[in-house]
Amino acid sequence: MARVKPKRHGVVTDMTAMCDVAFLLLTFFILTTQFKKPDVEQIKPPSSISEKLLPDASLMSVNVTPGGKFYFQPVENGTERIQLLDNMGQKYGVSFTNAEKVAFTKVQAIGVPMTQLKSYLDLPEDEQKAFKGAPGIPMDSTNRQLVDWIQQSLAINPQYKLAIKGDVNTEYPKVKSLFEGLRDIDFLKFWLITSQEGNPNK
């Protein structure tokens, strides 16, 4: 007698919970991801085979353009940025309004001397982003405003770290003045940002 095969029923899987989890994860990553801000000017760093990563927190950075102009990016903390602006204002005899302080917490990078900073902060935010022809922060043997920005940042938090991103075509004497200024304030450990190239030993 032939064996009777039981009738198979299709298995239905409820995917509602899986969709909920997927959307929750997607929302989490969108809200917590920190997107890389574009450079204020086009900078192509030299290449290296180093695989060390920059620290994520408490990082201030200096960008050096091919022409040798310096831009300073303070740490993202808004309260500490206002304190930094107050310290620099006291050092250079410049006072800032509350509106200018709020604007300073939003700037991507500082690329003007202290004498022009107030007028730059008074610009609307979209005009600040579109601002072209910035002279950069002075950094030479007679005017070391860039080192002052770094030193006043360290006075607020000595745990701040510094990364320097220079263009492959920047002349060394331009960067040398920065290195000498950092040496004079006894700040000897910092990162140099490079682009990744293949390791010939692999």
Rank of each mutant, 00 (worst) to 15 (best):
A22W: 05
D140R: 03
F72W: 01
D86V: 09
P55L: 05
V75Q: 14
L85P: 03
Q128W: 08
D39N: 15
S95H: 10
K106D: 12
P66I: 06
F70N: 08
V75R: 07
L123P: 12
G78C: 12
L121G: 03
A99H: 07
Q128I: 14
K101M: 11
T79E: 14
F104Q: 00
D148V: 01
Y160E: 03
K161I: 00
Q34M: 14
E41D: 15
N143G: 00
L146G: 09
N157S: 15
P45K: 00
V21Y: 03
P55A: 09
V62E: 09
Q128E: 10
Q83T: 12
S119F: 05
G89M: 06
L84K: 04
S153K: 05
F72N: 00
V21R: 07
K36H: 13
L54Q: 02
I82R: 03
G78D: 15
R81P: 13
D140P: 14
A155K: 14
S58E: 09
V94W: 06
V94E: 12
R81Y: 07
Y71I: 04
Q108F: 02
P135W: 08
Q159W: 09
S119H: 03
I110S: 09
G111F: 08
P135D: 08
K37F: 12
N143D: 15
I156Q: 05
E127Q: 13
A57K: 08
G133V: 13
V40D: 08
K129R: 01
V62Y: 05
F104R: 00
F35E: 10
Q151K: 13
Q73D: 03
V64T: 07
T105A: 13
L31W: 09
Q42K: 14
F23G: 03
K37W: 05
P45N: 00
N63R: 12
L24G: 09
V102R: 11
R81K: 15
P38H: 03
P113G: 14
G133F: 08
D39G: 11
A103L: 12
L31A: 13
N143C: 01
K52N: 15
I82W: 00
D122T: 12
S153D: 02
